[in-house]
Design a protein around this nucleic acid. Structure first.
Lengths: 335, 335
DNA sequence: GTGAAAGCGCTAACAT
DNA sequence: ATGTTAGCGCTTTCAC
């Protein structure tokens, strides 16, 4: 059995009391330099580590933060997680990642589980399926610090981090227009997501600026956020089968973008339709059909969100003023 | 402050002792149906959850397993993690993921941290940099259940899961040969990794089978496993600059493969050199230059590894017999 | 400066 | 069937 040494073992070995050892270990000043030295050296020698679980129980905090994302196999989220970790580690926190796979059920289970005193705070990007927010409202009311990022929620008052989705979508759509496209379809994410409406607005604004009327028939929503390959395939097929086929597609997300390209390839339509969309893939410039991409500052978003969460966790007084950070996207043409 | 209800609160509210409540909650049979019902209903009503930290402290186990991988932003590992989670959740375990970014230091820190009684066992794929295994040996000796997957370690006696790297490499190399290539370079991973030598052997075997002599000048190792973009770039450049330029490259890993394609594109060499390599990317068929790929059964590997680890954790008696599972790869031509 | 004791939330003997 | 108690590993009053 795996049985690590405890403070008690050290006390016994050194003929001291556990409290003395404890104090020495955490460098309390009310301890003689001699004993402190002895303890520290011994602890070092046997590679002693305080039991974090006992510590958590006692201090009623775990020095860990929970991260809930739909999927880790997604460049945007894995980059965001790297950002989160970079801050968390530097401030002595652990990061516990959990995936929803865009399922509402998993989101509820995961947040509950994480919340129940095993994390000090929660960083969450909503699942595509989530329409009921009661699980989050309750945790938030109970006082669990929560920060939303990317797929945020208006109704809960807390810190939030997003990218400038409207502007990103605008840039992508405008790019397509400037390339001469006029019938620009929009392959959108689940309709209830914050990012979906923001990106749609950017799309509309760009069309408006160039006097192209919005045609709702050219907009398809993927309610499973692309987790369902078939859903994307059908949406693309729908576009391709239109009597008046679109000459471009603006795609709202990473998952959707790759799904869209795969469908275009499958239907052999890759040459007569231009694609631009959100993607943080690191192989975006190697794709064929090519994908001009709106890239979100995922790493920075993760950093920012983690900073906000930790400030919430460590705040001595209840925080009343909340901030929504909006980071800028960049656009990369690929041909 | 986030202050969840405790068993004590329930006891007080219901005028019972904490032990009765505890027993009712875990369905001990030595409790009257009436009280059990009352307690359960009340707990349900207030959405009570036992404090997992207190539980861990008491039971000396956390019902969580630690996963150490180099990077989550890697299709192979994220698929493997999905497999791990599928098993872990079904058996009531949590999964704590930590990334080494292929740094030895981070591997040491992360494993220590996870091990120290906050996980019941460890699933690990070694970092590219790791040459010293003392940190793992120590934990293993102390009795922490460890299962290696993908990048395994011979010297520690425990369960292991890999794919048939030799055969995968053989298939890829043979494919290139059958395509008419004769000067086949090999872009390899860090030389100390198990997968590196296994894949190199497959490469050599294929060359041997077709009577092509092995030329060590055609083999380049990437000691940072491709984490260092420049390293890959230089290796590819080295191949391209050879007086007798290779007509194909067999690439040993996902990260390396995309880095290799990027370099080929950069140096405008994508048309006269054929690439085959290990990759679990889900966009592999969309890549240009194209990448014919050896795909590992990542999800299955994760499942298998998790099953092995949990059986180790839950074994009543010390396990002495260990198994190394070797799963088969598949090869996918892309042109 | 150091030790004894209580308590964080929970469970499992050990009473009754 | 239920209550009392001790203890998981740690920190922190409170004594001395």
């Amino acid at each position: 059995m795996f049985k690590p040494t405890t403070i008690k073992d050290i006390a016994k070995a050194l003929n001291l009391s556990t409290s003395t050892v404890s104090r020495a270990l955490r460098g309390g000043y009310e301890i003689s330099e001699d004993t402190k030295k002895i303890v520290l050296e011994y602890a070092e020698k046997i590679n002693f580590q305080r039991n974090p679980i006992a510590l958590s129980l006692r201090e009623r905090r775990s020095y860990s933060i929970g991260v809930v994302v739909c999927e880790v196999a997604n460049q945007f989220f894995s980059q965001a997680i790297d950002g989160i970790e970079s801050i968390a580690y530097s401030k002595g926190y652990h990061v516990i990642i959990s995936q929803t796979h865009d399922k509402y059920n998993r989101e509820v289970i995961n947040t509950e589980h994480l919340a129940n005193r095993s994390v000090d705070g929660l960083l969450i990007s909503l699942s595509a399926e989530t329409k009921d927010y009661a699980h989050l409202v309750r945790l938030h009311q109970q006082g669990l610090p929560i920060v939303f990022f990317d797929r945020i929620l208006d109704s809960i008052k807390t810190h939030k981090v997003t990218s400038n989705n409207r502007d990103g979508a605008f840039k992508a759509t405008e790019y397509l227009i400037k390339k001469g496209c006029r019938r620009i379809a929009h392959l959108a994410n689940a309709s209830q997501l914050s990012i979906t409406s923001e990106r749609k607005t950017g799309y509309e604004d760009a069309l408006g600026k160039y006097g192209i009327p919005l045609d709702e028939n050219l907009v398809r929503y993927c309610e499973y956020g692309g987790s369902n390959k078939q859903e994307v395939d059908e949406a693309v097929k729908y576009f391709l089968d239109m009597r008046d086929r679109p000459d471009a597609i603006f795609v709202a997300s990473d998952r959707l973008s790759t799904g869209c390209l795969a469908a275009l390839k499958k239907y052999n339509a890759k040459n007569n339709i231009l694609i631009a969309g959100f993607s943080n893939s690191d192989v975006v410039e190697l794709l064929n059909p090519s994908l001009s991409a709106v890239r979100q500052p995922a790493f920075e978003m993760g950093r920012k969100a983690a900073e906000m969460l930790i400030s919430l966790i460590e705040s001595k007084y209840p925080v009343e003023e909340f901030e929504t950070a909006i980071l800028e996207t960049t656009f990369h043409e690929n041909t």
